Amino acid sequence: MVLTEGPAPFRSGADHAAGPDRAAVLTGTDSALLDLLHALRALDYRFVTVTPETHRRAVAGRPGKAAADLRDVFGWSLPFDPGALPGAVLDALERSRMIGRAGGLRRSRIRVSSLERTLFLHSAFPTEAEDSIFLGPDSYRFARFVRSRIPALGPVRRLVDIGAGAGVGAIAAAPLVPGARLTLTDVNPLALRVARINARFAGLEVETVEGPGLSAVEGPIDLAIANPPFVVDPAKRRYRDGGGMRGAAVSLEWAIEAARRIAPGGTVLLYTGSAITDGCDGLRVALEEQLPALGCSLDYGEIDPDIFGELIEEPGYEGVERIAAIGAAIRKG
């Protein structure tokens, strides 16, 4: 096993197969991570991941304290005594090489969250690295939004999850689009690696495509889903930074690109956050202006009127009164 100081992001193992789509191959450390998920499910492990700020507050009173249970280890990212873990769990974690030192204790370099009826691997707290794989409250809202909309759509032969991260969107949608080809894209190869493992654990085969947006995706698309980054991030981390328009630029870019690419009768389901200034939602205005020229209609609404309230104190949010979680359904034809 490899031991490092403190939490660390995922790193690709040398035994992981190369190529643009590695869905069929899970070997070495990947197989160990899959074994870890199975071991945790056998122990009825469950953990709902919160926002980074809530996480920070929840563990603030426990600095340096050893984890008391599996949720502390794989949810709250607390240090642990190896002897406190069940044998199958410790064995899988050691074989995965996702274990680090924390003083005289150890720390998991991954988190595991429960969503719907499955478990998802993602990066340990804090998610500060450029290649972090984030899963949190927006992932839960995204999954519910996608699942609420799909039943009203026509047949879906191909679903593309843009910027898939841990694969939450496609995996949550899969039972509602039986037989559909599932394609996951991301600029982060480590995210695609984790998404493949999460998909395999959920009993799914997916194809993964590395690249921004839909740039590397070929062929027709019936349904595109996306949960883009929407935060103004001074560090410009890809999984977090939404660019200009107070964080909405990436959301607009992905939505318009997908609207151009979907087949006639196809749909784009966009979940994101939008900064509201003087009662105006700039993302909605931009979509309403640009979509008609692409032959697309827009069904746009707020899912939650106020999320991540602490952000409006940060640089880049001057004049913003709130950040809303929004869901947009874009239909072509």
Rank of each mutant, 00 (worst) to 15 (best):
G167H: 03
A324P: 02
V232M: 09
C280K: 13
Y300C: 01
P155V: 08
Y239G: 02
A166P: 03
L223E: 06
G103E: 12
T27L: 13
D35S: 15
S12R: 15
V112N: 09
V50D: 14
L192F: 07
R147L: 06
F80K: 11
L182Q: 11
L176D: 08
K236Y: 03
R181K: 12
T208L: 01
G203D: 02
P220A: 07
S274F: 06
D72C: 06
G266I: 00
E116N: 10
E318G: 15
V250C: 04
G75F: 11
L115N: 08
R149G: 03
D15N: 12
F125S: 11
E313G: 13
G13F: 11
Y140H: 15
R240I: 08
F134A: 13
L291P: 05
R322V: 04
W76Q: 10
R237N: 08
E218G: 05
A174I: 14
N198I: 00
C280D: 14
P52A: 13
L294W: 05
A129H: 10
D35P: 02
F47K: 04
P82C: 06
P126K: 05
R196L: 02
G219I: 08
E257P: 00
L121E: 07
A224P: 11
L298Y: 08
G203H: 10
G279C: 08
R141L: 13
P151F: 11
T185V: 02
P189L: 07
E207A: 15
R11E: 15
V194M: 13
R238I: 08
L90M: 11
S108F: 05
M1Q: 14
G136Q: 03
S297T: 15
R193V: 00
I326P: 02
I197T: 06
I99Y: 01
Q290T: 01
T277D: 11
T208H: 07
